[in-house]
Write a protein that binds this DNA or RNA. Structure first.
Lengths: 214, 214
DNA sequence: ATTTGTTTTAAACAAGTGTTTAAAATAATT
DNA sequence: AATTATTTTAAACACTTGTTTAAAACAAAT
């Protein structure tokens, strides 16, 4: 038998509290990513987190709110570094190169993210636009200005910045959404798919730069 | 009071039979496209088709089978013309031009198709690979051979055909999956989105051709 | 006109859904 | 040590889900 001081007590309690809450978030995140909102039941979340069903409603008020919390967490984690690159003062070519590279690396680490976002986006359009998702995931103001400037300096051809950014995003993200068919068609393992994707870093960069030439 | 001959009788009966069956397919198709499999209940389908719930199980044995039927119908309709272009004996540039054009026109007519397919693909990977979908939607054997030949003739640079096809597909299809965010970000109406997409025909063509130059 | 076959109906079934309740267990405060 | 507050639990609630059943309505064949 032994005693703990106040700080230890506090630590342990907070630890436990965060534990349950975080266990819920973590289990729910995995399930939502794998199976989507509809195919994931609260009982499944509870069972995976090894907690009672009602605790989900105790910490988050509803399944819906838990879901929105998780969306924001996922998007927040994913978009941070990417926004930094896009708003940095790097030269255009280097910025594009880094953006492609970081975006692809991020998606390799979170291979289910794109499908998840697209699913939410098309099932609950209002949700992703209402939440701070639009700004985080698709904000090109700074980048557009840079494209304008480079054009006026005569360094690149004239492009529609909106179209150009969508091109870049399409080339980066779409293969992840289409992953299952790509793997099936080419008999790719998970590892081979990642290799296929990594090859794309240079391909995408070359395509975009080549297109920008005046 | 009047009598009908045999053929008229047959016609009317068949007409009615097809009517109920087709009413189910049509209503279910709209709902599945709009809301997906999970968020669409059989009672909603029945109500929209103005039939009794059990008729869905009478004509199709289950919701699942009805869904698979509809997937095949949608993919079949969509992929026909596209496969023809890809397997035609057109020159490379013209083939690419026509493929982009027809694909985009098809997606403008079926704006929900891409999201629908991606949703199925990621929720039930085995379904889209089991069904004849993979072959219909993503068959590049012929196209790959053509890219090889053009390279050997020295007319284009060396490219990985698989990567090149995925690039083309990404540029064509992704904006439709991302539609809601694009519209929100740019304050596009439906019409303006279609204009934005139509602009892409030339952009995508130029990007691909530019990249192919030796 | 009666039998046979097909299509449609209303009702029920069994299982699963998210959420709430009220009591129990545990921790914190006085 | 007794009281208050927080966290956890089991059970129930109200509702929706896809599917089945068995009878009714209807048409076709004998």
């Amino acid at each position: 038998m032994f005693y703990l001081n106040c700080i230890d007590f506090y630590t342990i309690v907070m630890q436990n509290k965060l534990d349950t809450q975080e266990k819920i978030v973590q289990s729910a995140t995995e399930l939502f990513l794998e199976k989507g909102y509809d195919r994931t039941s609260v009982r499944e979340i509870a069972s995976k987190a090894k907690i009672n069903v009602s605790l989900m409603n105790y910490y988050f008020r509803s399944k819906e709110i838990l879901f929105e919390t998780i969306i924001n967490l996922l998007i927040g984690k994913a978009s941070g570094a990417l926004k930094d690159v896009l708003n940095s003062d790097l030269g255009l070519n280097e910025k594009i190169r880094q953006y492609i590279c970081k975006y692809i690396d991020m998606l390799i680490s979170n291979p289910l993210l794109i499908s998840f976002i697209l699913a939410v986006l098309n099932r609950n359009p209002e949700k992703l636009t209402k939440l701070k998702v639009a700004d985080n995931l698709y904000n090109t103001d700074n980048f557009a200005k840079q494209l304008e400037e480079e054009y006026e300096k005569g360094k690149i051809r004239k492009v529609n910045p909106e179209q150009f950014y969508i091109n870049m995003l399409s080339l980066i993200a779409f293969p992840f959404a289409f992953k299952h068919l790509i793997n099936k068609k080419n008999n790719f393992s998970q590892k081979e798919f990642n290799e296929f994707i990594k090859e794309r870093k240079e391909i995408i960069y070359n395509m975009l730069i080549c297109y920008l030439k005046p």
